[in-house]
Nucleic acid binder design. Structure first.
Lengths: 206, 206
DNA sequence: GCCAAATTTGAACGACGTTCAATAATAATA
DNA sequence: TATTATTATTGAACGTCGTTCAAATTTGGC
């Protein structure tokens, strides 16, 4: 029966993702080996490959789950009509999440995909969902009809946040300490939002 | 004689870095293996380890050379008293460099260091040298005595640029295409600089 | 209970970073 | 120059990695 096959596949799928998450949180990227995950999940490497095809795809699903959890965390951020406050509320949650889930975040953004790996469509869509949350918070900074510009600005802010936090976390920024990531985020938001609102008022002078 | 020893070490050192650069440019991160570099450099893996200690250190020196070359490229950017123009000139050179040296840039920022790897002091110093170039271009946006704030703002802008370009290059930003990195950079600079100058004029009203 | 189909298994493969006893080359001494 | 002491180089070997696949096991239908 195909039904039972499906059920067993799903149980292996779920179990593998659970133990992969546990391993990643406890030991980081380096612990995420096929043999280790199979052992902790109570199956053989062959079964893992039967379900996921390869280790990269397993990590892809792990990242998908991480993105979902971030989305939930951001959904609980208080809203505000003031874009600067709304954006700051979001970035505070974002920073909190990446701090509390540092190793998972590391896997999410530092994992190197094979050059020819094709991402399933749902993966970039989940990232765009996050961009959408940020764009909604920034919407008051843009005139109606400028949804594209708003989305682009959200992408800029999102990428910038990522740059600050990843460089700070990995110590690749020189003397700038990792503790200053929060302060740097604040500088970014203040000035970027100020620039946007100035542009807005210049176009629609009161 | 220690002299001759030193000379041979240096010749292996230099040759290894040259072939490592060639390999990285042609094939990217994945081609940078100890056996491959040794083969191309005309020595054995043992000699490579005798000189560099480990492969991470070899890559560290490769990255150092890349940073030096970027520094030279930025030094040739035209200066301007207008901070926005000066910053844009720098970021254009930066984008040009990372595009022309995409694989080297990838190695520079995506290489995962062992958790306990200790960077030599000269490495973060080279990154700070780049931050200094950016900070000098932004200096007119800050009152005298605010050098620390200026440096921090430079670090924010630098990190943001890195976030935009790395996410765009690796396709980790969702639907945002890699071709839009340049446009996103422009959005970032315009609004960030506008925010900074607004802050400046608010403190020193004319 | 038996057979056919599907699933699970883990030994095996090639490649990786790294090590180190053996070899070769060099410097010092007689 | 011949011999010894020191140093550098070598590459086979170790353990681990992702991945494969023939064989063993389990499953579902009769």
């Amino acid at each position: 029966m195909a039904r039972q096959t499906e059920q067993r596949r799903k149980s292996v799928f779920d179990k593998a993702l659970v133990v992969a998450k546990d391993i990643a949180m406890a030991e980081g990227q380096s612990g995420l080996t096929a043999r280790r995950i199979a052992k902790d999940a109570g199956c053989s490497v062959g079964t893992l490959y039967n379900v996921f095809g390869n280790l990269d795809t397993l990590i892809l699903y792990l990242n998908g789950a991480t993105l979902d959890r971030l989305n939930e965390a951001l959904a609980q951020a208080p809203t505000s009509k003031d874009p600067e406050i709304a954006v700051r509320n979001l970035t505070e949650r974002y920073l909190q999440f990446t701090t509390e889930n540092a190793n998972l975040w590391y896997v999410l953004f530092e994992h190197v995909w094979p050059r020819d790996y094709v991402m399933p469509a749902w993966y970039p869509e989940r990232i765009n969902r996050l961009l959408g949350v940020l764009a909604r918070a920034m919407a008051p900074l843009f005139p109606s009809g400028a949804e594209q510009e708003c989305l682009q600005a959200a992408a800029v802010l999102w990428s910038s946040l990522h740059g600050i936090h990843s460089l700070a976390a990995s110590g690749k920024m020189g003397l700038i300490s990792s503790e200053s990531a929060s302060a740097m985020t604040e500088v970014l938001i203040q000035n970027f939002v100020a620039g946007l609102s100035q542009r807005m008022t210049a176009q629609n002078p009161t």
